[in-house]
């Protein structure tokens, strides 16, 4: 691994491109989980209404 890269930012030791990629994965994960969670709540509400 190229540890002598001066673009690395400490304390994580990641470069900017690497941290951007990690961030995009976090966003992607949140979107996917959010979508499925909304769907699960909708179907649960159809089966047994829990809003009024």
């Amino acid at each position: 691994m190229a540890s002598k890269d001066e673009n690395r930012v400490w304390p994580t030791g990641l470069t900017e491109a690497e941290s951007e990629e990690l961030h995009s994965k976090l966003i992607q994960g949140t979107q996917i989980f959010g979508l499925f969670s909304a769907l699960a709540h909708l179907l649960a509400a159809i089966y047994s209404p829990w809003l009024g």
Binding site: Q28, G29, I32, F33, L35, F36, S37, L39, A40, L43, A44, I46, Y47, S48, P49
Partner: peptide, 26 residues
Amino acid sequence: LGTMIQFGGLSVMPFALLVLSGGGNA
């Protein structure tokens, strides 16, 4: 990515099946 989608599918699955069967208020 595959793990997340499989997790999502499984977490929706039981409610989807219960609605599919027309039980409860469905």
